[in-house]
Amino acid sequence: MAGFERLVVVDKEDISVVRFVDRKIIDASEIEQLGAELLSLVDIQQRKRLLLNFEGVEFLSSAALNKLITLHTRVKRAGGTVRICNLHPQIREVFAITRLDRMFEIASSESAGLAMF
């Protein structure tokens, strides 16, 4: 999909599978861009069913987690759903500690994530 630098978006029927370009999501300016790209999926492209595939992502900063929370809120307000798959074990642990695993349904694989819809 044209226009994204931090994301790769592939549509599987009415579900948008979102993959991340960066292995480490820590740079403030990149996180701002990532957040803007994620929100544009909802606000501009009207996508309501997102599967965030974190395959290959090894680290997320707290600022990146905040962008995910904002995305979740925006998608939910639009009547949609965000699911997550392929979390690195360390990131999964952060989701558990911050209780984000209660906000997001998390699957072990992309196919399992797609099946959750």
Rank of each mutant, 00 (worst) to 15 (best):
D22R: 10
I84M: 12
T81M: 07
L52R: 05
S61N: 03
E110W: 03
I26S: 07
T81G: 05
K67F: 05
N66L: 12
V82R: 04
I69R: 14
E110I: 03
H88E: 15
T98C: 12
E105G: 09
A63N: 13
S111M: 02
A107D: 01
S109L: 05
R99I: 01
L52E: 08
A112T: 04
L68H: 05
K48F: 01
L34E: 05
R99M: 12
A2V: 04
I91K: 06
E110S: 01
E32C: 11
L71R: 08
D14E: 14
K67L: 05
L41E: 07
R77I: 04
V82N: 03
V17L: 06
T98M: 14
V57T: 04
I91D: 11
N66P: 06
A107N: 04
E5H: 11
R74S: 11
R19Q: 15
K67A: 12
R19V: 06
A28E: 15
R83G: 07
D101E: 08
V17N: 02
S40Y: 01
E13R: 14
V82H: 11
I106M: 07
R23P: 00
I44L: 11
G79V: 01
L41W: 02
D22Q: 10
S109D: 13
L50F: 12
I91A: 09
L71E: 08
I44F: 09
S108G: 14
Q33A: 07
V10G: 00
L39K: 11
I84L: 12
F54G: 10
E30V: 13
L38E: 11
F117S: 10
K48A: 00
H88P: 04
A36I: 05
R74V: 08
V75R: 02
K48M: 02
A96C: 02
E30C: 14
L65Y: 13
T73P: 00
